[in-house]
Amino acid sequence: MTEFMMIFRNDYNPSFKPTPEQMQASVKQWQDWMGGIAAQGKFVGTTRLSSEGSKILKPNHVIADGPYIEMKEIVGGSLNVKASSMEEALKLAEGCPILQIGGNVEVRKVIPMNN
């Protein structure tokens, strides 16, 4: 089994303010999808990033506000999974809720730390 990282990207949309019900429905979608991967014993770990308060550090101590001005897409989080191949990892990514709201999933192979 190889480890893969799924990186979730979506268009930056500051005007989208979900209602608590929408938030709850979204959490359920994500949890059901990740629960399904975990039920196959293929879940490794996940990171969810806040869309607020991002800073970018550039050379010479230059600190800039968020990536949103320069980039159209922002990273929302990541999920690490175990899969036997890239094809299988892509298959696992198929149910990802971000695809339903126009986002995308980048799947990358993780290089083991001890190699």
Binding site: Q31, D32, G35, A38, A39, Q40, G41, F43, T46
Partner: peptide
């Protein structure tokens, strides 16, 4: 119950938890 199983599997996989979750 489903959401609790989803979380539990993310902490620790076991076949019986996977079956109960399903």
């Amino acid at each position: 119950i489903l959401q609790l199983y989803n979380q539990l599997l993310q902490i620790e996989y076991s076949p019986i938890t996977a079956l109960n979750r399903t």
